[in-house]
Design a protein around this nucleic acid. Structure first.
Length: 222
DNA sequence: GCGACAG
DNA sequence: ATCTTGTCGC
């Protein structure tokens, strides 16, 4: 896929934070995703093993969820895990994977946050700037913000609030299971991102594209 | 200063 | 995220 190269990745933690402050104003998080025109949805995930990172992108039809393309990319893990700076750890290998992708998905679902981030630029938002296509952040645990208890039934949601600002939702994708934390990445908004993730989770807690990407990323070559 | 902290 | 077997439940 064609990528809009934005910057180099070899930055120190403090330089990375400064870059996020510069890029945050470019993130568009109030634009509805055109759910009626989606035909392809991609799931993005990265697995780390022995200093090596492997990225997987699985493109699936929507709403049938039939896999149409899977790409993998490997690289040495370049950056330590620092809460708030995940994109600088997974960005390099993801960039390589995106370049291998031939299909052009209508939207990308990421394993991690979108604007539900201290500086409102989690990995889904950050990579969205490179992709220039709609992206959604789907976290399994919270990075920042608070939410009120929500009902046990699948589909229940509660606003995620941080510093008086609504940054996403806690969404129950499976009855009685822990909620997922959904937020717009880039070129998306909270209501449509929430609806899309719910529609992409017909059977499991993880959205189908991310679930498959997670499985593929965890498969390292001997 | 203290606590919290995606993957 | 990763280290790791069996096991309780639908």
């Amino acid at each position: 896929m064609k990528l809009h190269h934005r910057h180099d990745w070899n930055l120190s933690p403090s330089e990375a934070v400064a870059l996020q402050q510069e890029l945050r104003s470019e993130v568009i998080s109030d634009r509805p995703i055109d759910l009626d025109r989606i035909e392809l949805v991609a799931g993005v995930d990265v697995s780390v093993k022995n200093e090596q990172s492997q990225a997987a992108i699985v493109v699936m039809t929507y709403p049938g969820f039939l896999p149409v393309e899977t790409v993998l990319a490997q690289r040495p893990t370049p950056f330590p895990y620092v809460p708030g700076l995940l994109s600088f750890r997974e960005g390099p290998v993801l960039e390589e994977a995106f370049e291998k992708l031939k299909t052009v998905p209508d939207v990308f679902l990421f394993d991690g946050m979108g604007i539900a981030h201290p500086r409102r630029i989690g990995i889904a938002s950050h990579m969205g700037l490179w992709l220039q296509r709609p992206t959604v952040g789907c976290g399994k645990t919270l990075l920042c913000g608070r939410y009120k208890d929500l009902a046990e039934e699948k589909g229940s949601a509660a606003p995620l609030i941080d510093r008086k600002e609504t940054i996403g939702v806690a969404l129950r994708t499976r009855t009685a299971k822990n909620p997922m934390f959904i937020s717009p990445g880039h070129l998306a908004d909270i209501p449509t991102a929430t609806e899309l993730v719910l529609r992409c989770s017909p059977k499991y807690r993880l959205p189908e594209p991310i679930r498959l990407a997670h499985n593929a990323a965890g498969q390292f070559s001997p």
